[in-house]
Simulated scan of single mutants.
Amino acid sequence: MTNGRDRLRELLDAVLDEENTTLGAMASDAFASPYHFARQVTKGAGEAPVAMRRRILLERAAWQLSNEAGVTEVAWTAGYDSVEGFSRAFSRAFGHPPSATPARPKMRWLPAVNGIHFHPPMALWVEGEPRGRPDMDPTSLLVHHDLDDIRELLKLAAGLDEQRYRHRRAGGVVLEWDGPEDSIATVLDHLIRTKEVWLASIEGADQPRRQLDDLPTLVRRLDEIAPRWLDAVHEIDRRGGWGDTLIDALCEPPESFVLGSVLAHVLTYSAHRRVLARQWLRDELPGATVDYGDPIMWLQQRGRP
């Protein structure tokens, strides 16, 4: 890690910098010798830096040609000294000369052991595993982030005294049937209680009794509901049950809900409540660092790409 950035990403930045047309220039930009630079890139990305740059620039060239750029201009920006040399390299890679590139085709990627490809206008795209990564499914990410973020809000709220924790604010209503949510305490309580209530409906259990909303109790309640909530979501997903209908006899009169819409409902209003809690925590903790609850930053902080 250098300056808080991933070292491999810094190496790739050096490979793809427009000015770094040689291995020596790439290495210098990354503050490494050519030998160690080539070794680090090859070890980290599975492809030698010069070969990677040449391949990605050819992928960019195919995109530029499909958008009606001239062959001479594309050859020059791809780092070739002559149109003839560029045409030979392009033909070997794609199986046809640059002049035969169809207009606006589907993105053309060349085979790559590392899944790293050009993405317009000059960015990178990294392919996932062939069968996908279940932990990168958006539903899974949102469910796990929601629970982790609630825990983060509880930690922040520990910096409040009782008066600020329960300070009432005007207009604090998220959903009418849930009642007022006019303090940090009530919002945090509803973040957890929503899952307790819906999980009871999914499991066919009795309506859960209301519990205290002091911070130690909220932490205990979250510890209890989080693994059960994750297990329920995982089981529904495993059996492909998001289209199943739940007839909730706890409602008066009983109502039916599609399970997929239940999860969407919980995540939607949980996100709203978390934003609301953050806004109020900033007001009450002016000297504290209160982040934005961004799933992108959460994932990066967990060490995931």
Rank of each mutant, 00 (worst) to 15 (best):
G46K: 03
A48E: 15
A48Y: 11
P49D: 03
V50R: 01
M52T: 01
R54N: 10
L58K: 00
E59P: 00
E59M: 01
R60V: 01
R60T: 02
R60G: 05
R60N: 10
R60W: 01
W63F: 13
L65Y: 02
L65P: 00
S66Q: 07
S66F: 02
N67D: 09
E68M: 10
E68C: 05
G70I: 03
G70D: 12
E73W: 04
V74H: 01
W76G: 09
T77S: 14
T77H: 08
A78N: 07
A78R: 03
Y80R: 06
Y80I: 12
Y80K: 06
D81I: 09
D81Y: 05
S82I: 06
S82Q: 10
E84T: 13
E84H: 14
G85A: 14
G85S: 12
G85E: 09
F86W: 05
F86N: 02
F86H: 11
F86E: 12
S87M: 05
S87L: 04
S87P: 07
S87I: 12
R88E: 14
R88I: 14
A89M: 10
A89W: 03
F90Q: 08
S91N: 13
S91A: 13
F94L: 10
F94I: 05
H96Y: 14
H96W: 13
P98A: 12
A100W: 03
T101W: 01
T101M: 15
T101I: 06
T101R: 09
P102W: 08
P102H: 11
P102C: 13
A103L: 14
A103T: 13
R104L: 15
P105C: 04
M107E: 09
M107F: 01
W109P: 05
W109S: 12
W109N: 07
P111Y: 10
P111R: 04
P111D: 15
V113S: 15
G115D: 04
H117T: 02
H117P: 00
H117F: 03
F118W: 04
F118Y: 11
P121Y: 00
P121K: 00
M122L: 13
A123E: 10
L124Q: 04
V126E: 04
P130F: 14
P130R: 03
P130S: 09
R131E: 06
R131M: 04
G132K: 03
R133W: 04
D135A: 15
D135I: 07
P138I: 10
P138D: 10
P138L: 14
P138N: 08
T139C: 12
T139N: 12
S140H: 02
L142T: 12
L142F: 12
L142S: 15
V143L: 14
H144D: 14
H144R: 09
H144T: 10
